[in-house]
Design a protein around this nucleic acid. Structure first.
Lengths: 210, 210
DNA sequence: GGAAATGTGTACGAAATAGTTAGTTTAGTC
DNA sequence: GACTAAACTAACTATTTCGTACACATTTCC
């Protein structure tokens, strides 16, 4: 029984795990081959070479995460609630997709040169900003958000807070002798992040008094 | 003419650059050796093995950055101005030490296992929190900051915003087709970051109206 | 039925790579 | 000036690692 799609997928899943774990140069083709149900020969058959395999793994990571993001629904919510939901969702989503975070870290170490080569990833990301932009504009129109903020920059700030929580957990935890992955600690960071973003965007008169 | 300290330093500087550029597995001992004024044999003579060299490079990166941080002076400034200065300084400092940022990214890919082995780094970092804690507590006492924020968590938020700006610039720029390293763009992100932190910490009645 | 695509398995080659062996030179000390 | 330990050099080794060659089997599609 032949199953080209299944074989490709099997290889890609194993490779994604290995690359996310060890980086591009750290991952071993022989190791990946051994962990698949297939063989080294088939890796080269389908993906050409190591870099080709890495590129597909990177594309796959972006695709999976963008598909997950599409599940966020804030329709009908007032802007403040919608933004809160978006931040909470982003925080949780990053937390749940550590493999993706690691791939992005690795790709940044490579200065984004593989992302550069991938049309597929660029296409995936063009609409990544639409959701937050829509919420923000609604909030400005409703006079609950202050005007003059660039949605891309707002997205940048949200990403920074949510990404760092996963990407730098190891060093941060070790330096401050505190487990930043622990349940209650995570809940506090999540709350801080939501607060921070809402306070950044909200008009002063829309904030609760302290 | 022999110069053990100079040789060590030369090797360490070259190695730091190579590790920051290519990661632990990506960096090549032969390449490092070729770029030093010394030889491969001397690398092993002074640093034992590749991991030993990496560990020293990591320690050196932390030491350099912590020494730089010590130059921040906010004495005499009112808490709000002091915090503003601290955030601006942190933002600029991260921006100026890309090699350090890359080393921390790489170390996180390795789950902080080398940092774990380094007593030197743990010692360096114990006081990293003192400055921001002092400012925050002064602000609470002056009734300009809201109470109940954990200084370590505040430091975490500041770090996230400043770190991400350097660590994820490559992928972010490529995805949004905008150069996030450009002068004016950087100035805007810096301003946003300051705003965000101040608004997070400030009491509502200490904020300007919009 | 025949062609094209999919698949297995092993062995191999060539380059790259971490680390070592064996020895020499230099600087300071009695 | 002989001695010693640290500093240093050059050539070498063993292994890893990517990628390929080869020889062949099976399935799928027209």
């Amino acid at each position: 029984m032949q199953d080209p799609d299944g074989t490709r997928r099997d290889i890609l899943e194993v490779a994604s795990r290995e690359f996310a774990l060890n980086g591009l140069s750290g991952a071993r083709i022989d190791e990946i081959a051994a962990r698949t149900r297939s063989s080294k020969r088939m890796i080269y058959y389908y993906f050409g070479d190591k870099e080709g395999l890495y590129l597909r793994a990177l594309e796959n990571a972006y695709r999976l995460v963008r598909e997950g993001e599409a599940k966020l629904d804030t329709e009908g919510l007032p802007p403040m609630d919608a933004l809160r939901r978006l931040v909470e969702f982003t925080f949780d989503h990053h937390h749940q997709h550590e493999e993706f975070i690691r791939m992005v870290m690795i790709e940044n170490i490579h200065n984004g040169q593989y992302l550069d080569r991938s049309e597929a990833i660029r296409e995936l990301n063009v609409t990544a900003i639409d959701h937050i932009a829509e919420i923000y504009e609604r909030g400005v129109a409703d006079v609950v958000f202050r005007p003059g903020i660039d949605p891309v920059e707002l997205h940048w700030q949200v990403s920074a807070l949510c990404f760092f929580n996963v990407s730098n957990r190891a060093t941060f935890s070790k330096i401050f002798g505190r487990d930043f992955g622990a349940q209650e600690q995570l809940a506090r960071l999540r709350g801080n992040t939501v607060d921070m973003v809402l306070r950044f965007v909200a008009r002063a008169d829309s904030l609760p008094d302290d």
